[in-house]
């Protein structure tokens, strides 16, 4: 014979347990009260992109070459790039203007995926509130540039991987360069006599289509 209302008493025991344990057990009160204490950020968290630089000077060490791949890949089109020019008006491989509108960005990470120079990465800073909702949320080049050390700090695993990849790339490029120099030296040694010229290949005429009546 079961007592009527036993289930209710059992349930009330469970809630009472939760109530009292919330006063002395940490796992029963997991709330992090934000302005006083901040939650620990997971190293895989991401929100908005930032630009990476090597060395000490942000603008000189900028990895970005203004190739605009990220600008074209960005689905909500929140990236705006203008290439830099030197005194003679010749384009330099670095951006003069690099803006990201964080009010538009949807944190998809496509810019990171597409970048061939490992220059753009996702940030995990979250205190981005601003008094101006237009200019304040539009981050320019200087605000976006952050050192590689910062990247190591927020995403250590990813940063190490990126560094390894870049080192491997640099080594490959070095090897290629050496090989090219060697080939050039070899070529310089047994240079063919200048009189012999290669005839340019004759261009074939495309077959004329016959006119029908």
């Amino acid at each position: 014979m079961s007592l009527i209302g036993k289930g209710i008493l059992k349930g009330m025991g469970v809630t009472a347990k939760n109530f009292f344990q919330s006063y002395y057990r940490k796992e029963r009160l997991p709330t992090v009260e934000y302005p006083e204490e901040k939650a620990t950020i997971n190293q895989f968290s991401r929100n908005f992109p930032f630009l990476l630089y090597d060395g000490d000077d942000p603008v000189d060490g900028m990895r970005c070459t203004a190739c605009t791949l990220c600008e074209r890949a960005c689905p909500p089109q929140c990236i705006y790039i203008i290439k830099d020019k030197d005194e003679n008006g010749k384009a330099i491989l670095s951006p003069r203007i690099f803006d990201i509108d964080t009010s538009v960005c949807m944190s998809c990470q496509l810019c990171v995926e597409v970048c061939p120079y490992e220059a753009i990465r996702m940030d995990s800073a979250f205190e981005l509130s601003n008094e101006n909702r237009f200019e304040g949320l539009l981050l320019n080049r200087e605000e976006l540039l952050k050192p590689n050390a910062y990247y190591h700090e927020i995403h250590p695993l990813e940063a190490r991987e990126t560094d390894d990849r870049m080192a491997a790339k640099a080594a490959l490029a070095e090897a290629k360069k050496k090989a090219r120099q060697k080939r050039a030296r070899l070529a310089a040694k047994n240079k063919p006599p200048p009189g012999l010229k290669k005839t340019p290949p004759t261009r074939k005429k495309p077959p004329q289509r016959e006119k029908s009546e």
């Binding site: 809630t15 939760n18 109530f19 919330s22 006063y23 009160l29 997991p30 709330t31």
Partner: peptide, 13 residues
């Protein structure tokens, strides 16, 4: 406050 504690929250503070 009571409901919050039952639901493992601190409630209004």
């Amino acid at each position: 406050k009571g409901l919050a504690r039952i639901q493992n929250r601190p409630g209004p503070n």
